[in-house]
Each structure stands twice: as C-alpha cells, then as structure tokens.
Write a protein that binds this DNA or RNA. Structure first.
Lengths: 198, 198
DNA sequence: ACTATTTTAGTACCAGGTTCTAAAAAAGAG
DNA sequence: CTCTTTTTTAGAACCTGGTACTAAAATAGT
C-alpha cells in the first residue's frame, strides 16, 4: 500500500474512532509504530491523549455556554407578568441542512421559553398554544421574540401570553399561549382541564 | 483544615475545573501530593486522564446519538403521507430541573419533527399548529407520538397532520399541524398565506 | 503514654506517547 | 548495476500524570 493511501486510511480510522492508540493502528495498517507516528506528524494529528483532551474541552465549553438547552434564546428584557423580549440566532444546528431553513420547533422553543419565563410563578407550564409560522426563518437570522401577557378573564391559573417573533421588521411567527401557573393550588398539571380557544 | 472540609474543597475544585492535575491541587490545598491522591481514592475521583477520557467519550456518544438535534425523537414507523410513530424519552436535559417536568417545547419538537417527517416531500415546513398539553410529562417517561395525515381538502400545498402523544395509555399531548409542502411550485415558504383554522 | 489515624516521603512501575539517532529496505535516476 | 533519495523500522532516553506499595513521621484520641 502506498504512503498516501495509508495516510488517508489513517485519517479515516482516527476520524471514525478517535480513541484508537498508535499500537492499535499498527495492527490495522500493518506497519511499524514509528511509521504511524511519522504519519501522524506529517498529518498534524495529535496523540490520543491530546485528542481526548480536546474533545473533553470542547464538550466542557459547550456545557458551560449551553444552558441554552434550558431556555432557548437569550432573554434581554423581562417585566414579569407583563412582557418580555428574547433574541435567538439561527445557527447550523437549527436548520434543515439542505435548505438552510430553520426547523419550526426551534422557533417555537424560543417563543415557548419566553412565554413561560414571563409568567411570574414558581411553576409555569405551557397548557396550549395556537401558532403560525408566517414566513420561514433562515440560517444566520436573528429572531427577536416579544411576549405580552394578556389580562386573563376568569381563571387565574391560566395566563394568556401572545408572542410575536420578528426578523428585522418582518414578523415571522405568532403564537397565542395559554400558560398554566401554580397560583396557590399546586400540582394540577393539566389533567383534564380544557382551555377555551381565545 | 480538617480532612472532611478538605475533601469537600477538593470535590468543588475538580467540579468547577475537571482539568486540574494533582500537582496543581497540592498548591491549592496546601497538602502533599500523596494526600491529594488518597483523597481522590477515598472519594472515587479518577485521575485527570480518566476524567478527560470520560468527558470525551460522553460527548462523542452524544454527537453520535444526537442528530436528534435534527429530528427530535426516534422514528420507529413511517408510512409516508399516511402515518408515523416516534419515541422520545424525557431526560435530564429536557426538564425543569426543579420540578422534573418536561419543557413544553421538547414535547412539541417531537410532534413537530414527526409531522414534518411524515410528509412525503422534499421540502416540508410547519405552517401552523394548534396544540394542547393534556398533562405534564416527567423525567424518565417515554413519549410515543402518533401522527396521522388527514386528507386535505382544497389546497394541496397544505397537509393537515394530527399528532397524539402518549405516555403508556395516557394521552399527554395533542396537536393539529398544517404542514406546508413543496408540491411542484417551490419556495413559497409561507409568505403571507393564511391557513384556515381547521 | 500508647494507640490509631492521617499525612508525607520515596521507590518501582505503567501507558502512551515525544525526540533523537541510526540503520535497514525500497524506490528512482543515470 | 550502482548511487542517491525516500521511506520504513528499530531502539534508547525522556516526559506526564499518574498507580501501587512500603514505610516513616506527625497529629489526634483516649
């Protein structure tokens, strides 16, 4: 096997299993460990421990910067029980890779997170929602969601929140949320209660 | 400083910086390296390299198993333009940490992903949705979502999909989706079209 | 004062390498 | 076929960040 081909093989093997040692590579490629190491040098592939360290660091950074998993979008303004604003930038991981159009649930998640956040209560759960995707959102666009709490008539445990999401001047999403809150009487959690539609 | 306190300190330091070596710990805790190592033994904290390896492996597994970022839930049955079933287990990262109740947008995401997947088209986007969270879903529960495509009257570009999500026998979520499809005429992407509500 | 616990010290050893020197083996050129 | 260059292999010394083990101090408990 020629050198080039072997090095391509080596790249492939390490790519699909970064946890492989040089020793194991000698078995797979049938060359000496020195050759493996020269190849790694030439290709700029760090040793196993360095590879693991880099993966660990990358994942650690992500964990640190992504309690975005908890609340989607960055809340920049919040007046409890009144209104709130959040910003969410559409990135690679949010779009259909083929079209660059954001998957609906991410846009929804931003609105939902904001609707829940704006309710000033210990427990606030989405009870129902009526939503419209007015136009599709694309990779790189910044979604600005604005939520307004509507004065609730009657049932105090259900708060109505309207959310409008904009990209620039353009409205791209609109949703009417009914948020269930834990005012006093805890642990209802929906059950068989039915919301009146608007 | 008593032993217990030191060990608590050690746990804290490693927790907030898992990349610390024993050597560095001697400086922070002002004890010998042997003491550090005895402490780690007693506390069952692995050595630096092992910690990094575990982090790397965990993140690697996630990367492998989380093109779930693309499609939420595992689709186990799919009859295009007819019906589909997906399974989604509620894990730590999906719940409000205080209550163990799933955030609504994850349950929605499963249903939305399925509704889009079941439409047999190159481009399928959520146009609108009307959803109900019937009861809250908790950590560890397996959500089984079933989607049915309803025969669309009139506008062929809009498919109606009903999704019901169950935990066991119990229905926990219900949604009526209108999915925009790319039948022939491409790139409409919503725009100023308005869906008739059911 | 004697015992038990805790801490420190030191040595041998390990994985998975790097760095360096040097010799074989293979390939290419004239 | 010989000479040169490239490629491959071998081996020894050294590195990091440890483990495993033995043993001696230091500290605390009673």
């Amino acid at each position: 096997m020629p050198k080039k081909a072997r090095q391509q093989q080596l790249i492939k093997i390490i790519e699909e299993n970064p946890f492989v040692t040089d020793q194991e590579l000698t078995r797979k490629l049938k060359v000496s460990i020195q050759t493996i190491r020269l190849d790694r040098m030439e290709l700029g592939i760090p040793e196993l421990r360095e590879r693991m360290k880099q993966m660990a660091e990358r994942s650690y950074d992500q964990v640190r910067s992504l309690p975005l998993h908890e609340v989607i979008g960055e809340i920049v303004d919040l007046q409890l029980d009144k209104s709130g604003i959040s910003i969410f930038e559409i990135r690679d991981e949010h779009v259909f890779s083929r079209t660059g159009i954001a998957r609906g649930h991410h846009v929804f998640a931003q609105a939902n997170s904001l609707a829940v956040a704006v309710i000033n209560d210990e427990i606030a759960l989405t009870f129902s929602a009526d939503i419209r995707f007015i136009r599709s959102v694309h990779l790189g666009e910044k979604c600005i969601a604005k939520a307004y709490v509507r004065p609730s008539s009657g049932n105090k445990a259900k708060a109505k929140v309207e959310v409008f999401t904009y990209v620039g001047e353009e409205m791209v999403f609109q949703g009417n949320f009914v948020i269930y809150r834990s005012t006093g009487d805890d642990n209802h959690e929906g059950g068989n209660i039915h919301a009146d539609r608007h």
